[in-house]
């Protein structure tokens, strides 16, 4: 089962060099244990664009679809057997990247390969 792990930031955090090292080590472990599907940090919400192409003409809107104090600063996708494993890893992830983490299951029925 796949889970989306969102790293939550309020934009005020200042990272020490240890954070990068801890995240790298955590990613290496995820890969070694076969949980890792994807990971990457996101650019600031100011770089976002909303696109609505449901109607006749495509509509662009500058900025993220939700303006809020907290935003997603990066994501992981993990392949794990169940929520307990996901939560255990997320607890470690929160420590490694020094941020709050949200865990949300994927449907796993769109585009199975």
């Amino acid at each position: 089962m796949q889970y989306l792990i969102s790293v939550i930031s309020d934009g005020t955090e200042v990272d020490s060099p240890e954070v990068g090292v801890a995240i790298d080590a955590f990613n290496d472990r995820l890969m070694a244990e076969g949980y890792w599907v994807f990971a990457n940090g996101l650019a600031a919400p100011v770089a976002a664009t909303v696109i609505d192409n449901r109607g006749e003409e495509v509509i662009f809107t500058d900025g993220p679809f939700l303006e809020s104090k907290e935003h997603v600063a990066g994501i992981w996708i993990w392949e794990v057997p169940d929520l307990d494993v996901a939560l255990k890893l997320a607890t470690e992830a929160s420590k490694a990247c020094d941020r709050k983490i949200e865990v949300r299951p994927c449907h796993n029925h769109v585009s199975e390969e």
Binding site: A43, V46, A47, D62
Partner: peptide, 10 residues
């Protein structure tokens, strides 16, 4: 500034 940031980052 915000527009220039977006041009770079996106």
């Amino acid at each position: 500034t915000r527009a220039k940031t977006k041009i770079k980052a996106a």
